[in-house]
């Protein structure tokens, strides 16, 4: 009796926790996206406006997040910084996923020596630390948003390529592909109509999981001074600039950009986690039914 109740409670406990994570993640993301879209429209303040008389003011009604070391409003700069982070995160994740899916699907579908060559190249790229490779790529361009996007995308397609290739390999031996061949389908038709659609849920999940990763990467590059130009609002640049004032006891220029990096990435990761849990039982039922 006792064991049944705990079992039932355990089962009931799983779903609400998942729903909570889903709702919290979606709500936070909605607020973030609204803020990023609306704030620049509603407050046409100059986010670069320097006011040395008002430097390093603690949070107040006029400046809810306080001001930084040259008197710029931190709330406004955080929102603009988040805008850059989201842009880099989403675009880089998309580019990396398209690239990784193409390479992985090609390697998996072709098989043989083509597969072996491509995957050894992927291993080779993976053996270099991401950040090092990213720094190398960024260093070849003038500072700006696009070099950062290219750098993050080019260092992050490898894991997607591995995931997609593994999926393609597991689908490749399914008899429905044999049936398609006997039905007169060309190799391309088999790949595009039967193989790729089976891989897309996994690739989509990989893309969503990559968004927070890409945001962290952008912040890291900017923190190191290799991302955006120094005057631009970027969370990484703000965190770097705030280091000196943190030692003097001014906590707000560090805390708020840090929260702006952590909270949206956790929200995206939570959403991706809920998606992954939805994906798994469905796949299991597809196999056993």
């Amino acid at each position: 009796m006792a064991s049944t109740t705990t079992g039932a409670r355990g089962r009931r406990g799983g779903a609400p926790r998942r729903a909570l994570r889903l709702r919290a993640g979606a709500a936070i993301l909605a607020v973030v996206v609204l803020a990023v879209v609306l704030v620049p429209l509603l407050f046409p303040l100059d986010r670069q406006a320097v006011d040395l008389a008002a430097k390093l003011q603690p949070p107040s009604a006029a400046h809810p997040f306080g001001t930084d070391e040259v008197g710029r409003d931190l709330l406004l700069r955080c929102v603009y910084g988040l805008r850059v982070s989201l842009l880099v995160g989403v675009v880089a994740a998309l580019v990396a996923t398209v690239l990784g899916t193409a390479v992985g699907a090609l390697a998996g579908a072709l098989g043989g020596w083509a597969d072996r060559t491509v995957m050894r190249l992927v291993d080779l790229f993976s053996s270099v630390p991401h950040l090092l490779l990213g720094i190398f790529i960024v260093a070849m361009f003038r500072p700006g948003v696009w070099p950062v996007i290219i750098s993050v995308a080019l260092t992050h397609w490898l894991s997607t390529a591995r995931i997609v290739r593994a999926e393609v390999l597991s689908l490749r031996s399914r008899p429905y592909l044999d049936a398609a061949l006997t039905g007169g389908a060309s190799r391309w038709r088999v790949t595009l109509r039967h193989l790729l659609p089976g891989v897309l849920p996994q690739a989509g999940l990989a893309a969503v999981l990559m968004v927070p990763h890409a945001i962290w990467h952008e912040s890291a590059l900017s923190f190191l001074g290799l991302g955006l130009p120094a005057h631009e609002a970027s969370l990484g640049i703000m965190a770097n600039a705030a280091r000196s004032s943190l030692l003097a006891g001014d906590w707000w220029p560090t805390l708020f950009p840090g929260l702006f990096i952590i909270v949206p990435t956790l929200a995206v990761a939570g959403l991706a986690g809920a998606w992954r849990e939805r994906l798994n039982p469905r796949r299991r039922s597809e196999l056993t039914l």
Partner: peptide, 13 residues
């Protein structure tokens, strides 16, 4: 061709 396992012989989508 007809295979032993219809589950695996039909594209699930």
């Amino acid at each position: 061709v007809l295979f032993q396992q219809p589950r695996l012989s039909a594209d699930p989508r």
